[in-house]
Amino acid sequence: MIGLDWLYALAGAMFAGYAALSLRDRRIGNAAFWGLLAASFLLGGRLGDFANGCLVLGLVALAGCGALRPPPPATTGPAEREASAARFGSRLFLPALVIPVTALAGTFLLKQIPLFDPRQVTLLSLGLGVLIAIAAAMAWLRPPALAPLEEGRRLMDSVGWAAVLPQMLAALGAVFALAGVGGVVGGLATRLIPEGNLFAAVAAYAIGMALFTMIMGNAFAAFPVMMAAIGLPILVHGFGGDPAPIAAIGMLAGFCGTLMTPMAANFNIVPAALLELKDRNAVIRAQIGTALPLLAANMLIIYFGAFR
């Protein structure tokens, strides 16, 4: 069956290509970093947990001592790009649109084919879309054969170590869960609520959800903790609230937290790297003004919607 392993092989081959290009250019730190990541994608399933852990320590060591160098200069200058944009026109958007269209169509079509793992069809279609887009762009634009790899490497180098931060934080979440961090935080939150005050309980629940999401970087990790500590025992069973809005909007209060934390790296830190912003926290700064009033609004929706 075609499952995630195939996609991991594709990603692994890509990172191995970046490592080879870096090695050719004598950029040893970058070569080692992308090489380790290639090993994780190609062999991670067979390495065993401890070897995978050592691989991660290698990535951390390389990033920690600043071994990664900034990307090589662009292959075409602004003037060349303007001329090329004028020549090819809006058809340049087509290969980029192939990816979402394939992801969309594949999500529905691949499910019908038993060859593909039905739980992973969206990600698999995304991979398929990338391959089709590259093939189409190569046939049409006729760049040098290594161009997709060279250009991908340039963008990847501009993202740098931030590329694995989301995956690292997901792993940290697993260690937090193993150590029982959620239970301790939930107990702490319960102790802070004055007894019998509905508004204080709703506020503690919504703000707690946002704060714990900021710590974990992920509302999915915060939801079970806050729901078990405050939502179910106090709001639903204690005050007799409607569980549907309490749960659904509690999750959205968590999303407000996601907008305000560097721990949600794939949404907040990675874009800052992708867009080459000077301030790593610039995206968070742009989001706080939306997140805080929205958190207050969600609190009020729970208060008025769940306790009628």
């Binding site: 990603a11 790009r81 303007e82 090819f88 980029a96 997709p148 995956q167």
Partner: peptide
């Protein structure tokens, strides 16, 4: 981290403007 496989497509098209 699988989402990074889209970068070669984006980079290639950026090269052509």
């Amino acid at each position: 981290s699988v989402i990074w496989i889209v970068l070669p497509v984006i980079g290639l098209l950026e090269r052509y403007g």
